[in-house]
Design a protein around this nucleic acid. Structure first.
Lengths: 117, 117
DNA sequence: TTGACATGCAACCATATGGTTGCGTATAAT
DNA sequence: ATTATACGCAACCATATGGTTGCATGTCAA
């Protein structure tokens, strides 16, 4: 938000990258979608909608969001569009979390020794 | 959202869990916060605010969001409150992503063989 | 050709979210 | 005792978001 502030990009620190991806995964409905997709393989929108508790249009929207984040990809097949997982970005997110973990561990170690001495 | 719909919990599928966590990480400012924390170790709010491009209050809000998601923990130390990473939930998120990846790989394999035969 | 089915598109709505300002308060420093 | 710091709380604001309904369109089946 804050469209007033002309996106002054704090000072320093380039594009953080994976944030939009996490945002895409940060919705229950969406996460349930990817769970479904990674469990049952490629599915059409109606299939995905069935038992989702929300409208077909809502599902379509979510799919587009996921697609925009590169988590999912849809191809039109006849009159239906089939959606499947795209792992690349997910892997990226994983790397991000791993980096955080290892970096924090390292810092912890540093702090510990600095206390010990 | 959808407060009207009395949280009917689709049909089947219990609490998805990690979604709120991803949501917490799904904001640039917040992600930059955890990056900062995991790089420099525990920091006070003013320290974290410096060079962030947003208000101290905004930072405080974000920290509370992260804390609520279990990514971060703050303890009051004198007149300042110091915040540090808490890795447990992050690890949870990692596991979630890994599960997705491996499950998808498995499905891919199954599909492939079913095509081959 | 006609109808059913799967989507796409658009408008609309309520609430969540990220941000701000302003003010009160506890703690540290002079 | 005063002043300066570091913070919490609350109100407010604009926009984003998740969801809906309604309708138009393309495609398969009889």
């Amino acid at each position: 938000m804050s469209a007033r502030r002309p996106s002054v990009r704090p000072r320093g620190a380039g594009p953080i990258g994976p944030a939009p991806l996490f945002a895409a995964l940060g919705d229950e409905t969406r996460l349930r979608l990817v769970a479904r997709l990674c469990a049952d393989g490629p599915l059409s929108i109606v299939r995905l909608t069935a038992g989702s508790g929300v409208t077909r249009q809502a599902i379509a929207k979510h799919l587009r969001v996921l697609a925009h984040a590169g988590v999912v990809r849809g191809i039109r097949h006849g009159r239906e569009s089939v959606w499947e997982l795209e792992l690349r970005q997910v892997a990226e997110a994983r790397r991000c979390l791993e980096r955080i973990s290892s970096q924090w561990d390292e810092v912890l170690g540093r702090l510990k020794t600095s206390v010990e001495r």
